[in-house]
Design a protein around this nucleic acid. Structure first.
Lengths: 346, 346
DNA sequence: AAGCGAATTGCATCCGAATGCAATACTGCC
DNA sequence: GGCAGTATTGCATTCGGATGCAATTCGCTT
């Protein structure tokens, strides 16, 4: 009795397989398999019978089993790190949708500590993902591990010294050049730079981009401090800048919008400065809060939509044709002339 | 010649299997399999030889094949919808980390249109996920489909009429009661309510919670408008409120922080009102921007950390023991007395 | 009605790892 | 030294669907 109950419970739990459907429809398992494929040949009669049976049993092809035999899991790994900018959620949602339009699922990996990365690589290799899209830092060694496995990889907003790797990025240097030109053109002569975490490549690109351009234009009064991309550190950084220099600089260039917002608040609240009259503050990214009326940050917006579109497409192309050579795409940011800075007249 | 080249290229591409390792180590495939499991018996000598061979060949067990035979994919589906609040990214990252601590991977599904949901269900059933955690709306029919497949499911911030389903949520009604008490206690008598999208359960809970409590306290002057959780509509909603009523209400209760921020900006900029002197504005969620000095929103913060922890744990427990009965947990929000509203003295 | 090519269908095998069972090796004990 | 008892190891099978090949059926021509 208990055995019977067990068995029936088990049957309820067990999902219908192609064999079950085949039996139900009185055809072979291959036939069922073919009906659930695109290019396979199957007569209308067959198709109808199989679909009816499948429907009756609630059959769905097992993607795991299919992946085993076809050597395609139809999954890609998307790797993000915790520290990444506020705007990544958008990126994530957009990417997921792009992939899903192509029948590809996203296996998400979020790492907070550096040490996690090797575990992460291990996991994604075990799951035989068809491709990897990463917005987190990969060392050359890690890239090699993924490449050796023959898995295409696309870097999002990071570039590898290793030139064999495809990447999509926003041209941070170009964006910073524009910001600097505008600020210098408006007469600012002393500058504060608020960098992000030291191991953030994006931050490095932005701050060195800004510094290089400042120096090219003959600006010598530059003070640099660094935060962690967060609001609180934005405030601290502004305070630190003032303390270091004895007074506020003419302009502050923050490595992202959130820190720029922190700077604006700190300037206004703690230092009674007017923005932009007393101090100009600019950011980078073009995230939502940068548009809030209280801040209206002058910034460079990343063309997130086109970037994710591009990244997904590049990865899919390389999954379908692994011989495709690497490609690096850089997108120009969108210049946003907000009210948080005095700029050169247009 | 070309055949040889092909073959070698193919071998490079093909990943080492347990058979390859077995051959290399001069043992059986079963032995390799056992070495890569936890509770299996294997002598030290065997283990060493196998690990050496595995290491040499860069072998990693194929999670897909393993999943097929063990009937456990070690993946859970996390479903989010595009419209969801700004704070979901945190949720997503935290969840992913919780699961990954248990060796469970996250398959991400993002839906923007309602119609997507049936495709999504289909996809997650095909991938034989071990569990489903959803922050998007599931109709009773969809819940049934998942349950019939014997897959445990946990709802995040939604409750199903269907009481057989586990869920984790923030007690929205309680939060709204507190906000309303505070506002009424401080003497506010006319209220505007800014609701979210009409199909958002969270919004419905919040606004009816607020309205019920207002009515209980004898407040009759209530005007309701609705937006889409975004900043822009927050601004529009405030304008709409003023237009509808002919003047601003004493207080505005927004369904989330972002719209509250929109209201604050609109009140200040377009209507030259002081916040909170002329109008009090409160939100819900406790997202990052709510803390920015320019807004300092009075709100109820969701205990995201505990909620995600709880949700992940509940799902994992039910994966490991499917007989476990459903459980609903409600967490109290954290009261944040910001500067955007006049409140009753503590 | 016979004949021919194309479309369908079934058979058998494969993907890569897990596992019950049986065979073997090893341990300690008398 | 012999034997019971335990720990290792290998064999064979299994998970669920895809696919090359051969057998069969169908449609159409003459």
């Amino acid at each position: 009795m208990s055995r019977v109950a067990d068995k029936s419970a088990k049957r309820d739990r067990r999902r219908a397989t192609s064999y079950d459907v085949a039996r139900e429809a009185g055809v072979s398992q291959s036939a069922v398999s073919r009906v659930f494929q695109d290019g396979a040949s199957a007569s209308k009669a067959m198709r109808d019978r199989v679909l009816a049976a499948a429907n009756k049993l609630g059959y769905r092809p097992n993607a795991i089993a299919r992946g085993l035999i076809t050597q395609r899991s139809n999954m890609v790994a998307v790797v993000i790190s915790k520290l990444t900018n506020l705007y990544y959620p958008e990126v994530l949602v957009m990417l997921t949708q792009r992939f899903s339009e192509h029948g590809i699922r996203v296996l998400l990996f979020a790492l907070d500590r550096e040490s996690d990365i090797s575990n992460t690589i291990d996991a994604l290799l075990q799951y035989r993902v068809d491709g990897v899209l990463t917005a987190a830092m990969f060392e050359s060694r890690e890239l090699t591990a993924v490449e050796n496995a023959g898995i295409p990889i696309v870097l999002y907003n990071r570039t590898a010294r290793d030139s064999r790797v495809s990447s999509v990025r926003c041209d941070q240097e170009e964006g910073e050049r524009w910001l600097v030109e505008q600020l210098v053109g408006a007469g600012h002569r002393s500058f504060g730079i608020v960098a992000g975490p030291e191991d953030s490549i994006v931050s490095i690109e932005r701050t060195t981009g800004a510094r290089t351009e400042l120096e090219r234009l003959g600006v010598v009064d530059i003070t640099t401090v660094s935060g962690d991309y967060g609001y609180e550190t934005g405030r601290c950084c502004f305070a630190e800048l003032v303390e270091k220099r004895g007074s506020a600089p003419d302009a502050v260039i923050a490595a992202n919008d959130v820190m720029a917002i922190g700077c604006i608040d700190e300037a206004r609240e703690a230092h009674k400065l007017r923005v932009p009259e007393d101090v100009s503050i600019v950011g980078f990214d073009g995230v939502g809060p940068a548009r809030y009326a209280a801040y209206d940050v002058t910034t460079v917006r990343q063309p997130v939509h086109r970037m994710t579109e591009s990244a997904a497409t590049m990865l899919i192309e390389r999954i379908e044709n692994p011989e495709l050579s690497p490609e690096k795409r850089a997108f120009s940011g969108i210049q946003v002339r907000g009210g948080s800075a005095r700029l050169a007249p247009e």
